[in-house]
Design a binder for these strands. Structure first.
Length: 123
DNA sequence: CGTATGACTTTTA
DNA sequence: GTAAAAGCCATAC
């Protein structure tokens, strides 16, 4: 069977792994803001690890980390949700974002995405 | 060490 | 504006 993080999940939740770094960066995103996979990757040093960022987030679907990771604040580079419409996570992400004041279009587009995008370097 | 996979991005049409 | 193809790279086997 091929590797399936949705079923097996990442074995290493804490430690010097890449995933740990991803979680740490995502936790920096304040409430009411969003970020992109590419931005998180860039913050980690490489702007080409966007897939791995999503990969890391996929791992915490079933995992429960102490500091909650606001995975729902991470969208793709075009300001859209990375789930097909009707997906369980897609609905949950919309609900969570709406609760923080982030409006999401029916197509899954984040309204005023450019303005809500969090700037890590601004810290 | 080589192959396979994917919550992505960028380019091209 | 959308759609399809190629490229990326950490993790697993």
């Amino acid at each position: 069977m091929p590797y399936d993080p949705a079923r097996h999940g990442p074995r290493r939740i804490v430690g010097p792994g890449f995933y740990e770094q991803v979680y740490e960066v995502v936790r920096q995103v304040p409430e009411g803001f969003v970020t992109t996979y590419g931005d998180v990757g860039a913050e980690l040093g490489s702007s080409r690890v966007a897939r791995q960022v999503g990969y890391a987030l996929a791992g915490l679907s079933d995992e429960k980390l102490e500091p909650a990771v606001p995975w729902y604040r991470v969208v793709n580079g075009r300001g859209r949700l990375s789930f097909p419409a009707g997906d369980r996570r897609e609905k949950e992400q919309r609900r969570a974002l709406h609760r923080e004041g982030v409006r999401v279009d029916e197509s899954g587009r984040v309204h005023d995405f450019s303005n809500l995008r969090y700037d890590f370097d601004a810290e």
